[in-house]
Amino acid sequence: MGTPTTQRTIKLEVFRYRPEEEDEPTFQTYEVPYREDWVVLDALNHIKDTVDGTLSYRWSCRMGVCGSCGMMVNGYPKLTCAAFLRDYYPNAIRVEPLVNFPVERDLVINMDDFMRKLKAVKPWIIRKKEQPLAEGEYRQTPAELAQYKQFSMCINCMLCYSACPVVGREEGFIGPAVLALGQRYNLDSRDQGRAQRQETIFGHEGIWECTFVGECSTVCPKDVDPAGAIQMAKVQGAMEYMKTLLPWGQRS
């Protein structure tokens, strides 16, 4: 834990866009105190509180779990609550809204499309027959839990959508986080809804759009490995397709 010091400063070049006043975005430079233990979000809060209240952005938990504060920091998608100034000092830090999303204002992106895709993958347990609550929990061994646990850690911060060039070029692509979420439910021993997610995950806007750049997994702050989830689904999908080609295979 560093000693707080206010002598040193660091520059933040912040993306500004106020749709009511301007048609094109600009960058505004702010000089803020440099502190060893400050993150980019702390600097933004400092600006908002003491310098310029017009700067808009989303944040809440500032402990890397609510997923609100994802932004581009020097061109890389980051949770700003986990991006320390000390990793950039003494250079200026450029802060922009997440790319591959439309911008509402300043650092606030529009996430309608993401929310629509999230619902499309049916991210809930689907059962042919519900077990009554009185009969207790579904049994699930630690080994069965481990099968999908990693893919259940996604905080919906959408950094992976900003890192993925396919998302940027193909509007319909379901995208890394949502495909990983689909796998999370498909791999859950309690779930029987795979067929209902088939179209979204294995359809033409699903996994086959992915060219395995792998950056989604690199930028993921929670180690969800969406690229892994997608490659896994590709292998499964391919195997299933092969089976349908065999003389005794069945076409679904």
Binding site: E20, V99, E104, G214, E215
Partner: peptide
């Protein structure tokens, strides 16, 4: 109301990062 601002990827996006260059 104005629609939100779209920022399209430029044609040189694949030069912006080592990983992108590698995939190309």
């Amino acid at each position: 109301m104005k629609p939100p601002l779209n920022r399209n990827m430029g044609s040189t996006w694949w030069l912006s990062r080592g990983a992108y260059f590698l995939i190309m």
